[in-house]
């Protein structure tokens, strides 16, 4: 659904993307991680047509990223966005319904009410944006991105201004979107959110993809703890694919094996291992 290969982008004094490849399939949530300035927002903006890549290719549902056809399939929530302060939540959604050109089942009013309810703003339909808290505006932004049930959701820090309840709501909304077959690219700093929600993770640093894959694969570390009749023994440097052979050797030696516990790292440990505290050194 989302495909990008070899994307490059430079601004006047900095290189934002250095050949980024990324794919997001229908019904998949991909977490986009990386330190500040890694190129995450630039990548998201290239995919939705706000920024033109210098090189490489990107497509949304087969259409070139940034084309009118591609944009008609995308729902986007920018990291820094604002809706007109004088408009009500309903009016914001009406405008986006008109511009989205996606017919909705059940009518536009029903869709607006459903979206506002999904993001927890059902009582705030006639509230002006300028009277909303930042968190409410963030929720409205998510509802705006969901207008017309887009095939692709590109979300740049969708929970940055939300309290824990708001984050929970966003996770639920995105889970439902995934269940409907929407491809979701979730750009966030919150590793816990990614661990709870994402099917795969793409870790970017300095404009390059430094790790990509399922979280379980990426966090499968080295080492294993084996419990036998002689007690627990840790083997901290054993590669994961050699564990079966190690267990076989122990059994051949006449040991009784009660438990084999492979060591796993957390997403945070992986992040720190691959990226470290780059921000502090910029």
């Amino acid at each position: 659904m989302v495909h990008a290969a070899g994307l490059t982008k430079s601004y006047k004094r900095s290189v934002a993307l250095r050949g980024v490849d990324i794919d997001v399939s229908a019904g998949e949530v991909v977490g986009l991680l990386g330190p500040n300035g890694a190129g995450k927002s630039t990548l998201t903006k290239v995919l939705c047509g706000l920024v033109r890549a210098d090189g490489g290719s990107a497509s949304i549902a087969g259409a070139p990223a940034g084309s009118s056809l591609a944009r008609s399939k995308v729902g986007y929530l920018a990291e820094l966005f604002r809706f007109p302060g004088w408009a009500t939540a309903q009016e914001v959604l009406v405008t986006h319904q008109r511009l989205a050109r996606r017919p909705t089942a059940g009518g536009d009013a029903d869709e607006r009410n459903r979206l506002l309810a999904e993001v927890g703003l059902s009582q705030a339909g006639s509230t002006r944006v300028e009277a909303m808290s930042k968190g409410m505006q963030q929720r409205l932004g998510l509802a705006q991105a969901m207008v017309g049930d887009p095939e692709v959701l590109l979300l740049d820090e969708p929970t940055s201004a939300l309290d824990p309840a708001g984050r929970h709501t966003v996770r639920e909304v995105l889970s439902r979107a995934r269940d409907r077959g929407t491809a979701v690219l979730l750009n966030t700093h919150l590793l816990g959110e990614v661990e709870q929600l994402a099917d795969r993770v793409v870790l970017i640093d300095a404009g390059r993809v430094v790790a990509a894959g399922a979280i379980s694969d990426l966090t499968a570390g080295h080492g294993v703890t084996i419990e036998t009749d002689q007690g627990r023994v840790e083997h901290p440097h054993v590669p994961r694919d050699t564990i079966p052979a190690l267990v076989s050797d122990l059994v051949a030696d006449g040991r009784q094996v009660y438990a084999v516990i492979p060591h796993r790292s957390t997403l945070e440990e992986l992040y720190l291992e691959l990226v470290g505290d780059r921000e502090a050194h910029r």
Binding site: C48, L50, F81, F83
Partner: peptide, 10 residues
């Protein structure tokens, strides 16, 4: 940040 949500539409 007012323009971006609009021009991302088709």
């Amino acid at each position: 940040g007012l323009v971006q949500p609009l021009v991302v539409r088709p």
